[in-house]
Amino acid sequence: MTESERRVAAATGTYRVKRGLADMLKGGVIMDVVTPDEAKVAEDAGAVAVMALERVPSDIRRDGGVARMSDPEMIQGIQAAVTIPVMAKARIGHFAEGQILQALDVDYIDESEVLTPADEAHHIDKWKFNVPFVCGATNLGEALRRISEGACMIRSKGEAGTGNVVEAVRHLRSILGDIRKIGQADSAELYEWAKVLQSPVGLIEEVANTGRLPVPMFCAGGLATPADAALVMQLGAEAVFVGSGIFKSDDPALRAKAIVEATTHFDDPSILAKVSTGLGKSMPGLEIATLETRFDQRGW
């Protein structure tokens, strides 16, 4: 090897490398899929990544029972079917599921409230992993606590499996609204913010200095239409996760592509009108007040 080909201090699993993949997914749509065929539909439609899981959130909600990490065989089937990144979910606090998913070479782990939590006090110590983690958050304090544990991407939680965007909007507005307020705070007030948000003051200072979350901030939970994607992108989300909304609709392939286009062209109403046309029925959707289980209240 010549001098110019020398590779010095190559390092895998660094924070920059883990966070880097989140940066590459920005402006895109990450789609929940339960079979290799669905994964192909998602890739064909322009998904930037797929989330491999056994049941989409609306089915978890309907069937009840304990929801766990997916069968590795199913995840491997999906990895073999597509060339885009494949994510998978671990239960909150279930670091052994995290270890297994890392051994399976998944591209991202979602420590997700959609699965039944394994620990009611602790999340996974994500610094111990070389594979990056995304975590959900309903407010800025929760987001910063997850980042302090090593999460490299945050998604606002919304209320998964409902097809109802109202909680996603509530969580996004809460997180981004507090970021705006912190930007106006003086240095003494930042310590008060750290107490109120129960988050490290160093991360609060970073938010104050940059005006944004220290990691990419995506939106999830209840998105079902191109208009929903455009709404949350205009509110300040950097990318979207769509779960039940695609494969529980009449024409998943068409809707998936429409949501991809709406996420890119979120600020052009004429394109949004065009891609929203003729999609068939969306998933039915649920009123939040009628829910037996609130996924968004899982996590601490």
Binding site: V8, A10, A11, T14, Q79, Q102, D105
Partner: peptide, 8 residues
Amino acid sequence: RQLASFEA
């Protein structure tokens, strides 16, 4: 895949 991502 991602686990092979690196900086150098």
